[in-house]
Amino acid sequence: MNHVLLIDDDVELVGMFSEYLEREGFRTTCVHNGADGAREALRGEYAIAVLDVMMPGTNGIEALRLIRAGSRIPVLMLTARGDDADRILGLELGADDYVAKPCTPRELTARVRAILRRTQASVDNGPGVVITVGKLSMYPEQRRATWDGVPVELTSTEFNLLEVLARHAGRPVSKAELSEQGLGRPLARFDRNIDVHLSSLRQKLGPLADGRSCLQTIYRLGYQLIRD
């Protein structure tokens, strides 16, 4: 799938993004308000949605809530530069990543490719591979995970980050590594994406036998998935 849904009330900007994406081999559909955009995203016909935060009526945050209530489609948020509150709230609600506006079509396309590369990547180890760490089981080809046999609902980026940690279980993984392997891009200065996604993962995964989270912060080294 290479069909991109663009949701933004700025018709001229969306047209520019759409034209560039289509030159790069993507199909695009453009919607110019949040309510219609959320309904369109829930149709299941798109590889990714690009969603602007600042829209009249149903804004991007409200549209994201509607999307996440019924779909795990990757969502890339467009946020105002320096607006950390909307950025963090969007990540907490299940956005996969964000791009600060103004941004170039080239930057947007690179970020879309990075998300889709991880989402759609085939597993080199062959079919049926299962990564098991304690009560956690991950099925990369099916993009699903379970904890003690119970399905865990993860966003695309949460799955990517947890897979990286699971493949390196028992040792710390730096934020730079997690950004490169999980987000598909270098870690930016003051970027809190990883921290917000890991906080969400802690809430979704069950505790260890002693009550601790299986995801531990290792001072100055990064994050570690504990073997239990």
Rank of each mutant, 00 (worst) to 15 (best):
G94L: 07
Q216R: 08
W147A: 05
R27Y: 08
A100V: 10
V123E: 08
G126M: 07
Q142I: 01
I61F: 01
G60K: 02
V31H: 01
K175N: 13
V50R: 03
K101L: 12
V112K: 01
Y46T: 02
E180H: 05
L215W: 04
A121F: 02
E158M: 10
L116T: 06
L178M: 13
S179A: 15
V123I: 08
D210F: 00
M54P: 06
P151C: 05
L116M: 04
T217E: 15
L215D: 08
G94R: 05
N33R: 06
R185K: 04
R189Y: 12
R189E: 12
M55E: 02
R220H: 15
D124N: 13
N2P: 13
T79D: 11
Y46R: 07
R202S: 07
L6A: 11
A63D: 04
S179N: 10
G94P: 06
I7S: 11
A110N: 10
R171T: 09
A38Q: 04
R117L: 11
A95M: 08
V14E: 09
L116A: 10
F26H: 07
M16K: 13
D148L: 10
R111Q: 11
P74R: 02
G82C: 15
M54T: 13
L215F: 06
R167P: 04
A49C: 06
D97R: 02
V196G: 06
T29Q: 15
I194E: 02
R227M: 15
T157F: 02
Q216G: 08
I67E: 04
S199P: 02
L6K: 09
A121G: 13
E141M: 13
Q142R: 13
I67A: 04
R117Q: 12
M55C: 15
Q216A: 13
R111T: 09
L136A: 12
P172N: 12
R81N: 11
G134A: 09
